[in-house]
């Protein structure tokens, strides 16, 4: 029982972590909590659904429920969602930045955008639930009492690859280093000749792509619905804060903690109260360690 809860917790945690990474990036580069991040996740899931619609999810690879087409669709959805994020920035946030609007005005705008995006998805794709593949997978008992579906193992692996890629990118690439410099101090970065707007754009592309991956994974392991992102919003924001707003590593750990806490709490509290768990975690962390678990030294 506990084993299964841990396995499920890690899986949910991985999806939350990908969403939280996007929020964390946005907090670092743009310095506001993006309430619309979860809707990018929904959009990504539906974009991938549309791409698989052209080619079907494909002949399944080995034990997986989908074929290479879905992998291509994930990549395309990542690009599409990144493009949407950049477009939204161009249309709304850039305008507010030029006006030097208050940070909270940005939060607020993202709050309104979340509503628009969610309902656009509803308008475009309708209210019905979808799956990438009708074919149902039977879980394999990997450890006594712990069952996992091949898709879930795949999702975990791919999430890990994505996180590592992001890490390597930020650590070693020129662009990544510029982004980190910008996160540390926008003014200094500008003096060093780093184009702020370009960095902002890349931050949006990255968080859009991460959101799309999270969305596809959530759709693959649960179901694709217009409300799927909105339902993940609180866990994602909690994970980002839990990890410390300056730390990408923290966002990943934060995601795992939230996922594990939700699934483990099901063993002791009635399942209908599980959705309150992220909030209780959030209050606890803000009370005890408001800078988050892994805030960089001297963070805000």
């Amino acid at each position: 029982m506990i084993g299964q809860a841990i396995a499920d917790g890690v899986l949910t945690g991985a999806i939350i972590a990908l969403g939280a990474l996007g929020v964390s990036l946005c907090l670092q580069i743009l310095r506001f909590a993006n309430f619309a991040q979860a809707e990018l996740l929904t959009f990504g899931a539906y974009a991938a659904l549309t791409f698989t619609g052209f080619a079907t999810a494909g002949v399944s690879i080995g034990p997986l429920s989908f074929g290479w087409q879905l992998l291509v669709a994930v990549a395309l959805a990542g690009i599409a969602t990144g493009a949407v994020a950049v477009a939204v920035d161009r249309l709304v946030f850039a305008h507010l930045r030029r006006r030097q609007a208050h940070d909270l005005t940005m939060v607020f705008a993202s709050f309104g955008l979340a509503l628009i995006l969610r309902n656009l998805v509803l308008l475009l794709w309708g209210p019905d639930a979808h799956y990438y593949s009708q074919e149902l997978q039977i879980a394999i008992e990997v450890l006594p009492g712990v069952r996992l579906m091949p898709d879930q193992v795949f999702v975990l692996g791919l999430a890990l690859v994505l996180v590592l890629t992001l890490h390597v990118f930020l650590r070693f690439s020129r662009l990544g280093r510029a982004m980190r410099a910008m996160a540390e101090s926008p003014a200094l970065a500008r003096i060093c000749g780093i184009g702020t707007e370009a960095m902002v754009r890349w931050a949006w592309v990255a968080s859009g792509a991460l959101a799309a991956a999270a969305g596809v994974f959530a759709g693959l392991t649960v179901q694709i619905r217009p409300e799927m992102g909105a339902n993940l919003l609180l866990p994602i924001l909690t994970a980002a804060i839990l990890g410390g707003t300056g730390s990408l590593f923290g966002a990943v750990v934060g995601g795992l903690v939230v996922g594990l806490a939700e699934n483990l709490s099901a063993l002791v509290i009635p399942t209908s109260y599980i959705s309150t768990v992220p909030f209780i975690l959030l209050l606890l962390v803000l009370w005890v360690r408001p800078q988050g678990l892994f805030a960089p030294a001297g963070g805000r």
């Binding site: 029982m1 299964q4 959530a218 649960v222 993940l232 399942t271």
Partner: peptide, 16 residues
């Protein structure tokens, strides 16, 4: 086991 609508996943309910 009661479940609420609009949960990101129903795994916990199913497990219980």
């Amino acid at each position: 086991v009661a479940y609420n609508e609009n949960q990101p996943s129903y795994r916990a309910e199913v497990n219980a």
